[in-house]
Design a protein around this nucleic acid. Structure first.
Lengths: 184, 184
DNA sequence: ACTCCACTATTCACTCAGAGAATAGTGGAG
DNA sequence: CTCCACTATTCTCTGAGTGAATAGTGGAGT
């Protein structure tokens, strides 16, 4: 995921901010997302300036290190509005390692033992993680933002679990099909 | 997703193959995954040779362009077995644009209209895609491999739909919380 | 016979994501 | 008075991902 539009969203209220501040705001806005690395924040801001989505809004070296503030431009607002107004293409590809590993395990091993063992171990890891997330969700200190993010994760872990379950019953057929070409 | 382990899986039967062939085998093994670009295939093979996961198994220039075959090494087999034997960390982060867009839309707009409109449009796109995938699944020409991949996608699209539905009812609370800090 | 096209096969150039280390100044704890 | 934590930015490096360039072979048409 590109950080560009999130940063534009943070800058959309018009107040200029500098890189360090934007990194912190990013992490605060999306606490369950992968933290934005500093290096990446500055690199992204550089590209955004180049693309005229943001512009420098002054340097400030008073009381501390030099820092550069950025503010959103008209093009930046347009880009943000365009992104928010565009539907994401739903699930064009299977990208997850979960799926890939099962296929490769079946293709590699002579019997389905590796794939079966993997699915069973992964299922256990999934249920553990779901317990952990459920705890986080019912925590009295949980805010709405957290609950919404955790619900997203829980829903997909549950979808994984259901898939693993039905795939376990299909392993034989899948294995046979993947090795079909081997004996011709 | 790194292509390394899939390529190792294809080479695991011991027969040497060259880059073009491996790219084709990759796409045939994972037809619902993002196709492996040629450039990426050769770059990945280069790194695998460097890391001694595979080794050159001879050049062949007879009847056509020069081509280099690769075969898996002992270290390559170890790496593949290690990968297949390791459980994936389940859902450490929310990485999807679906989630991010809703949060940014709420944080940006003064009312929740943008977020609501997005969720409704995305819901329609999701149901369309699900119909398309369901058709592909019930197609008499569908093989097991395809059904398993499509089931994976359908499960996650369904999880998205459920999340969108509950998030729509929570938009007000979420918006209030995201703008909390603005008036202090 | 000649041309154009599709296919096999590889390389190159380029952008961006992601991680980590390096630099440098400020303010506070002990 | 030193050390540490924090603010703030830059630099370096690997790898993912895309697209174009190069080059030879074989076949379909006209």
């Amino acid at each position: 995921m590109s950080a560009v539009h999130v940063l534009l969203g943070i800058l959309a209220d018009g107040t200029p901010r500098h890189g360090y501040d934007l990194k912190q705001a990013y992490d605060a806005l999306l606490p369950r997302a992968r933290p934005l690395a500093f290096g990446q924040a500055y690199a992204t801001l550089g590209r955004m300036v180049r693309d005229e989505l943001i512009a420098e809004a002054g340097h400030d070296s008073a009381g501390g290190p030099e820092r550069t503030s950025y503010q959103i431009t008209g093009a930046g607002r347009d880009s943000l509005a365009g992104w928010l107004g565009t539907v994401e293409r739903p699930a064009p590809f299977v990208t997850e390692a979960l799926f890939t590993k099962v296929v490769v395990a079946l293709r590699t091993g002579s019997d389905g033992a590796t794939a079966r063992a993997y699915l069973i171990a992964q299922r256990a890891a999934h249920t553990d993680r779901m317990r952990e997330l459920t705890r986080a969700k019912t925590d009295p200190a949980a805010n709405v933002s957290d609950v919404v993010a955790v619900d997203y994760l829980l829903g997909h872990l549950d979808a994984d679990l259901a898939w693993m379950q039905t795939t376990l019953t299909r392993l034989g057929a899948l294995r046979a099909e993947l090795h079909e070409g081997d004996h011709r």
